[in-house]
């Protein structure tokens, strides 16, 4: 098992949360939820390509591509599940553009490190952990 390292984008996102007063962190998560990019036409027209994240309470699907060892993560979640959308948005922004090794080196407890556990509850943060684990598994299978 290689050493873990937090890639730059995820580190910046973590620091942005930690530098935000606890009372405003949900609003920052809302910004991420609002930014979740639509899935590509190819993925949208082939829902079977996506994997359902069972650890999340709301329906969220992820699809990870690895092309020339560069990872792109797609995710989709409904508007009425903004917490899940926020988590998916953070990971999609943080993973996309990394090499497969960099993705696999992301610490599994990254979701616990961004200062949201108290604001959203440990149970809900577990959904983000599930999403990260599934994304890493897809990368290891597809590279």
């Amino acid at each position: 098992m290689s050493a873990t390292a937090v890639p730059d984008t995820l580190a910046e996102i973590r620091d942005a949360f930690l530098e935000t007063p606890e009372s405003d962190r949900l609003l920052l998560l809302l910004e991420f939820a609002d930014e979740l990019p639509p899935v590509s036409d190819e993925v949208a027209s082939h829902p079977e390509m996506c994997e359902r994240v069972a650890e999340c309470q709301s329906p969220v699907y992820i699809y990870v591509e690895v092309v020339d060892d560069i990872v792109t993560m797609h995710a989709t979640a409904p508007a009425e599940a903004p917490t899940t959308r926020g988590f998916a948005s953070i990971l999609a922004q943080g993973l996309t553009g990394l090499t497969s090794d960099e993705v696999l080196a992301i610490p599994d407890d990254y979701p616990q490190s961004i200062g949201l556990t108290k604001a959203v509850s440990p149970l809900r943060i577990g959904g983000m952990t599930g999403m990260l684990m599934r994304a890493k598994k897809q990368v290891s299978q597809k590279r």
Partner: peptide, 22 residues
């Protein structure tokens, strides 16, 4: 709500939020 962030996406004017978990 179940979703802790749903209120922030838009709510009935004047409504306050109470989260079951937190």
């Amino acid at each position: 709500d179940e979703d802790v962030l749903l209120y922030e996406t838009g709510h009935i004017p004047g409504a306050v939020k109470i989260d079951w978990h937190t």
